[in-house]
Amino acid sequence: MRILIVDDEPKTAAYVRKGLTEHAFVVDVAGDGIEGLHLATSGHYDLVLLDVMLPGVDGWTVLQGIRRQRQTPVLFLSARDAVADRVKGLELGADDYLVKPFAFSELLARIRTLLRRGAAQAAQEVRVGDLEVDRVRRRVSRGGERIDLTAKEYALLDYFMHHVGEVVSRTLIAEHVWDMNFDSDTNVVDVAVRRLRAKVDDAFASKLIHTIRGVGYVFDARDD
């Protein structure tokens, strides 16, 4: 799942980004309200973490701009702890409001709650062939057998599940799963796909991950 952080405090943004990345989220960061609003309304995000006090335009304005176009869950992260501020944020359409400083464990719990609540936008359980993924619990099984994945393997699988039947290039995979620019001399994507295949494909007659030579990969239940 992909999360956008809109916060002009580099230390806070880096702290949250690191923690979420360790829990298999793909995270983008915007350092001001203008960039944040642009990304939130032009990209695909499962959740937006939004500060109130931002350069460019404030968080209230960003939220209003998002709500005119999207119903993406928004969680305010702000040092403004007055009841009036919390009420204003919720009345403008925010889904939650957490006051800085905060414990990462609480933030993660609130994020997971919002993602469960936002299941109307993205199915909690998705299936391709006999492969099932519970996105809320991050559980994967195929043919009824539980499959244990590392955080990056799960992030790669989740990206494939969001693009079933589409040919995705190594560049796109590297950008969305590793948040990096793809270097043609780096085989990190191919190695990761090979490891994922070993867990979700090798023991099964029907293959889900298909290589498109010179292009990338396609994930679906078709036969080669």
Rank of each mutant, 00 (worst) to 15 (best):
R2M: 03
I3E: 03
L4A: 10
I5N: 13
I5T: 13
V6F: 10
V6K: 14
V6A: 11
D7K: 10
D8V: 09
E9M: 12
P10W: 02
A13M: 11
R17C: 14
E22G: 03
E22T: 03
E22L: 07
E22C: 00
H23K: 15
F25Q: 00
V26H: 07
V27D: 03
D28A: 10
G31I: 06
D32Q: 13
G33H: 09
I34K: 15
A40G: 12
G43T: 05
H44E: 14
H44G: 09
D46K: 05
L49C: 08
L50C: 08
D51S: 07
V52L: 14
L54E: 09
P55I: 09
P55E: 05
V57D: 02
G59S: 06
V62N: 09
V62Q: 06
L63A: 09
R68H: 12
R70T: 12
V74N: 08
V74M: 07
V74L: 11
L77K: 14
A79P: 10
D81L: 05
A82M: 14
V83C: 02
D85Q: 05
R86E: 12
V87Q: 12
G89S: 09
L92E: 13
L98S: 11
V99W: 08
V99I: 13
K100F: 09
P101L: 10
F102N: 15
F102G: 15
F104P: 13
L107S: 10
A109L: 13
R110D: 12
I111S: 01
R112A: 00
L115H: 03
L115D: 01
R116W: 00
R117W: 00
A120H: 15
A120Q: 08
Q121H: 14
A123F: 01
V128K: 02
D130W: 03
E132Y: 04
E132M: 08
V133K: 03
R135I: 01
V136N: 03
R137Y: 01
R139N: 04
S141N: 09
G143W: 09
G143C: 06
G144M: 08
E145Q: 13
E145P: 01
E145A: 11
R146H: 05
D148M: 00
L149G: 00
T150V: 04
T150H: 01
T150L: 02
L156C: 11
Y159P: 03
Y159E: 09
Y159R: 07
F160D: 05
F160C: 05
H162M: 15
V164W: 05
G165S: 04
V168A: 04
R170A: 13
R170I: 01
L172A: 15
E175N: 09
V177N: 13
N181E: 15
N181Y: 04
D185G: 02
D185S: 08
D185C: 00
T186L: 05
V188T: 04
D190Q: 12
A192Y: 06
R194N: 14
R195A: 10
L196W: 06
K199V: 00
V200G: 02
K207C: 01
I209M: 06
H210I: 11
H210P: 08
I212P: 04
R213M: 12
R213E: 12
R213H: 12
V218T: 13
V218S: 06
V218L: 04
V218R: 15
D220M: 03
D220S: 11
